[in-house]
Simulated assay, not measured.
Amino acid sequence: MTAGILAIDFGGTRTRVGWYSNVLELITREESLSHTEEPINAVIDRIIQLAQKVVPDCEVPSAIGICAPGPQAYTGYIRYAHTLPTWDNIPLAQRISAAFSNAPTFMENDANLAALAEYQFGAAQGADPALYLTVSTGIGGGAIIGGQLFTGWRGLAIEPGHIKFPAKDGKIYSLEALASGTGIGRLAWEKLAASNTPSSLRQIDTVDGKAVGEAAMQGDALALEVITEAGRWLGLGLVAMVHLFNPQVIVIGGSVVNLGELIFAPARQTLAELLIDPLFNHENLLKVAALGDDVCLTGAAIHAQKMLAS
């Protein structure tokens, strides 16, 4: 019997690990906090210890898939990851492979693997081209074109969070600064400082994206204004991507999707207003991600299987 696949989803906040059969059935999983504030070697040791809990005794994985942050994750090294600013040229894939008898190990960017998972098992099944956006603390993305993960010349393609826009104050902002959870918190702070509009947000110490979203869902007028503005900016980013890729579907995941139509309605309105041809648009162009918290874990298993076969 062929050994299974070890999948690891390493993020700045949480680490998830799973043992998959060779038909990509999840057999067992574990997760824990990543504690990335600790020394790097301690963090990697904790990932390995967590992974050892799901690998059956006396088995060596047929392959290991790792989902990791940073645009160059495909190299096996963590570089330029905004969520891990102190991790500079860290050979994560090599360290994990060595802990499991040098099993073949394949690492890739988290949003790319989420795109792969949603295409194979989630909301993008049967759609091609398919785009995936994660809108959470930041904004990332991935694309499936011709049934394959599209990563560009040097593996750096599909970074929608870094599309740039001029704002009313004359400054240039990234989409991430305007429509992510972090951006929503920033927009709220600016509106609170610039007006005397009554808002429940004035009663709390930490005005972040989560707090603004909760206030908006309770009908807070200022919070609703912020979410609508963020939705319009998100729509502008989507307009750019639709004009470039003409996707059949755009799947959106991440914590911001919990806002539902509060943020999707202005995004859809912006698409309808600004796309140059109505054929770019259709009723089901935007979909909410289907695979939940394990989307990157599943993507890591799929990626490992595909890379091993190739």
Results as ranks from 00 to 15, higher is better:
87 W>C: 02
36 T>P: 01
292 G>F: 14
130 A>I: 03
240 A>S: 12
160 P>Y: 08
158 I>H: 06
260 G>E: 10
301 A>H: 12
41 N>I: 02
74 Y>I: 15
180 S>F: 01
300 A>E: 07
228 T>K: 15
207 V>Q: 08
266 P>E: 04
164 K>A: 03
67 C>Q: 10
123 A>H: 10
151 T>A: 04
252 I>E: 09
214 E>K: 14
105 T>D: 01
126 G>M: 08
225 E>L: 11
96 I>P: 00
134 T>Q: 14
105 T>S: 06
166 P>L: 15
207 V>T: 05
6 L>I: 00
296 C>D: 06
269 Q>F: 11
48 I>E: 07
52 Q>P: 01
234 L>D: 11
83 T>G: 01
78 I>H: 14
304 A>P: 00
229 E>I: 04
211 A>R: 09
5 I>N: 01
216 A>T: 11
144 I>H: 11
68 A>R: 04
26 L>P: 02
150 F>R: 05
22 N>R: 15
160 P>Q: 03
129 P>G: 09
18 G>Y: 07
209 G>F: 08
305 Q>R: 13
11 G>D: 05
119 Y>M: 03
231 G>N: 08
154 R>H: 13
124 A>P: 11
160 P>E: 02
240 A>D: 06
51 A>L: 06
218 Q>H: 13
72 Q>I: 01
141 G>Y: 06
47 I>T: 05
255 S>I: 01
98 A>H: 13
244 L>D: 08
294 D>C: 03
99 A>W: 09
14 R>D: 13
29 R>L: 09
257 V>A: 12
61 P>H: 08
55 V>Y: 13
194 A>E: 15
120 Q>D: 07
63 A>N: 05
310 S>T: 13
188 A>G: 07
224 L>Y: 08
42 A>L: 12
113 L>Q: 03
278 P>A: 14
125 Q>A: 11
7 A>M: 09
291 L>V: 08
203 Q>F: 04
218 Q>R: 15
298 T>P: 00
156 L>R: 01
103 A>K: 10
10 F>C: 08
155 G>K: 12
43 V>Q: 04
170 G>P: 00
278 P>C: 13
258 N>P: 02
49 Q>L: 15
212 V>I: 11
123 A>F: 07
209 G>E: 01
105 T>R: 12
73 A>N: 13
217 M>A: 03
58 C>G: 14
15 T>V: 15
222 L>I: 07
227 I>R: 09
68 A>L: 14
75 T>Q: 07
73 A>E: 10
41 N>K: 09
88 D>L: 13
214 E>L: 12
5 I>Y: 03
181 G>C: 06
159 E>G: 11
145 I>A: 14
165 F>Q: 07
85 P>N: 11
173 Y>R: 15
193 A>P: 00
166 P>Q: 12
309 A>Y: 02
149 L>F: 09
279 L>W: 09
133 L>S: 04
35 H>Q: 14
247 P>A: 00
223 A>E: 04
246 N>I: 02
